[in-house]
């Protein structure tokens, strides 16, 4: 119970800090808008197949995540507050606090991305809403799980910005392939049961990553 309170405290600290400094959110929103505009320009009046649109949605989400989710750890490292946190709580608490923060961040960003995507690209019509929403939820969840531990790793390295997508991509590839496939199914109007395999992969992916991150975070977090 105490652990949950402490984790919540780490999250609230990050959340209030984000509200005040807007370290991640401003850049993220602008990033989403820019990327979507580029996609709209490149599509023009073409009739692009739903498969391509499903893929592009996740390309936008992947790169937005890569531009924003590393902030949680990188900002601590840059401001010199990493040791302050190390002196306040055990590593697991910090990890889960940051994970919750990244989850909230990715959920808000993905809500924005999907809303804009649905509004601006009329060809992107979801037939099976249940598959689409579940994919979005589980996909965002897995994305946050993977990118949180990678963010913790790159925060200690030199060229943080470029390293982040490089390290994340191979880790995220199974997730990205799964969500792209599931999104296609939702556009094709497949019944919910057809995407069950995808959902199982997404759930186990997140579970495995949280477990491994939990164990490894101690080694990553301390110098």
């Amino acid at each position: 119970m105490l652990y949950i309170q402490q984790t919540a405290a780490v999250f609230i600290k990050d959340f209030k800090s984000e509200l005040r400094t807007r370290y991640a959110i401003n850049a993220l929103v602008m990033f989403v808008i820019t990327t979507l505009s580029i996609i709209l320009f490149s599509i023009g009046g073409e009739r692009v197949s739903p498969d391509v649109l499903a893929g592009m949605l996740w390309v936008v989400i992947f790169f937005s995540a890569m531009s924003g989710l590393s902030r949680s750890f990188v900002s601590e490292e840059e401001r010199g507050t990493t040791m302050t946190l190390q002196l306040l709580a055990q590593p697991a608490i910090i990890y889960f606090g940051k994970l919750v923060f990244n989850l909230v961040l990715i959920f808000s960003i993905n809500t924005l991305v999907v809303t804009l995507y649905l509004l601006l690209i009329p060809l992107f019509t979801v037939q099976t809403t249940s598959i689409f929403l579940l994919t979005l939820f589980l996909g965002s969840f897995g994305l946050a799980c993977a990118s949180t531990i990678i963010a913790a790793i790159i925060a200690k390295a030199n060229s943080k910005g470029t390293l982040y997508p490089v390290l994340s991509f191979p880790i995220l590839l199974p997730l990205l392939m799964t969500v792209m496939n599931a999104t296609k199914l939702s556009l094709d109007g497949a019944p919910l049961s057809e995407a069950a395999g995808e959902f199982r992969v997404l759930v186990s992916y997140s579970v495995v990553l949280i477990a491994v991150s939990w164990v490894l975070f101690d080694y990553v977090w301390k110098d």
Binding site: A146, I149, I150, I153, K156, A157, L167, P170, I171, L173, P174, L175, M177, T178, N181, G197, E198, V201, S204, Y205, V208, L209, V212, S213, L216, Y219, V220
Partner: peptide
Amino acid sequence: LSAAYSIIAFVTVPFLVFI
């Protein structure tokens, strides 16, 4: 850090086999 990364990579790659 590189040990941690190779472990994370090792546990995620098998998902490719399923998908």
